[in-house]
Design a protein around this nucleic acid. Structure first.
Lengths: 112, 112
DNA sequence: TTATATACATAAATTTCTTATGTATATAAA
DNA sequence: TTTATATACATAAGAAATTTATGTATATAA
């Protein structure tokens, strides 16, 4: 039932940035659960992929973090920086182009 | 002008199989040119990606080859095997699912 | 004679992701 | 009570796909 994860390679940064553009701030575990619920369990975002990706986006200055302790557990909240706000626009345009080109190449009509 | 090639990671096998399901037989260089023309130069399929991918699909029994010399140059024609004919159906369904899920995750409407 | 196009191929390096492992708290189930 | 599951972070080793670079060879246009 799960989708072919292989195909999502390269889309993770865009997915993260887009979720943060819609949600103000989110913590890592929350992102994994959000992806799971949006895709109805079809795409499972692995921790080994997510956390390094978050760290990389932070290192590039696209994300900012604040740490809180909630119910005796650590939470590291991520939000978009100013650069992140700009970059998410680019990434979404790239994703749209990508989908359009892929549909052309695979002779797939857009799903009405 | 070129698309973000990063996003096409994982889609190469599907693209190759689909082109061969539409064209009976093609040779490697022809595939690179076909991808270029379909995407109007936005996606450039590198030889270092294409040839290993073709060899892998052949090793898996999804493609068959015949070699010809045309205008004093070697051409290696690829065509779908019976298994390849079946697999292209699966790959295209996976690609459709992938696009649908990605549009959900990125909150993108299908492009009418 | 130089660059470009055609046509194949592979090796090294890079990037991204999976799998596995580790720490730690809380709670539900057996 | 101890086992499994959920929450919450993190990183290391390995696998896989791709980019970049390089190589061979012929034909043609500049």
């Amino acid at each position: 039932m799960a989708v072919n994860n292989e195909l999502f390679k390269g889309t993770l940064q865009t997915i993260i940035l887009n979720l943060l553009s819609e949600n103000e701030r989110m913590y890592g575990y929350e992102i994994t659960q959000k992806v799971k619920s949006i895709t109805q369990g079809e795409l499972l975002l692995k921790e080994g992929a997510l956390y390094p990706a978050l760290h990389k986006l932070e290192a590039e200055g696209l994300l900012e973090t604040t740490t809180e302790v909630v119910e005796n557990r650590l939470r590291k909240y991520y939000s978009l920086s100013n650069d992140g706000e700009k970059e998410v626009v680019n990434k979404l345009r790239e994703a749209k182009d990508f989908i359009a080109q892929l549909q052309l190449l695979l002779n797939l009509k857009p799903s009405f």
